[in-house]
């Protein structure tokens, strides 16, 4: 992996686009790389630790209907209909049925090949 970026880096989308799927899966925060239809291409190890969902299970599935239905609403999933998106928000994910407070960052641009769902648990860990 090239020099690791940070969760709130303003140039994070550029960095993500330069990473291979395998490199993204090692990112220090949760990363989900989706194609423009919302199908999971890469599912980071950190994301897997937060949700308990394995990388093998997630790859190839529709993210917002099959993997993270908790985010399938106007606050998150619907935002990906926008041509350009860079938004951070506080949210809750579930580990089995345990609520996990997280910070999300939603990213895409008209030039980017993929769209990204990023999760930072550390922001709420203290």
């Amino acid at each position: 992996m090239s020099t690791t970026s940070t969760f709130s880096d303003p140039n994070l989308l550029d960095w993500l686009e330069q990473q291979t799927d395998e490199q993204l899966e090692e990112a220090p925060f949760g990363v989900v790389r989706m194609n423009r239809d919302g199908v999971v291409i890469a599912y980071g190890k950190s994301e897997s630790h937060i949700t308990g969902i394995s990388q093998e299970y997630a790859r190839g599935k529709y993210y917002f209907t099959q993997i993270a239905p908790c985010a399938n609403n106007r606050m998150v999933a619907a935002k990906y209909a926008l041509p350009s998106l860079d938004e951070e928000l506080d949210y809750i994910l579930t580990y089995v049925c345990e609520p996990i407070k997280v910070r999300l960052r939603l990213l895409k641009s008209p030039q980017s090949q993929y769209q990204y769902f990023l999760v930072d648990r550390k922001a709420f860990s203290e």
């Binding site: 239905p69 908790c70 609403n73 606050m75 506080d90 994910l93």
Partner: peptide
Amino acid sequence: KIRQLNPKAVQLMMPMVAHLGLPGD
């Protein structure tokens, strides 16, 4: 205070939480 919930509960609850300005727990 929430002990456990399923993803559908999060999906429906979070827009209400954001609207009310609550922490969501």
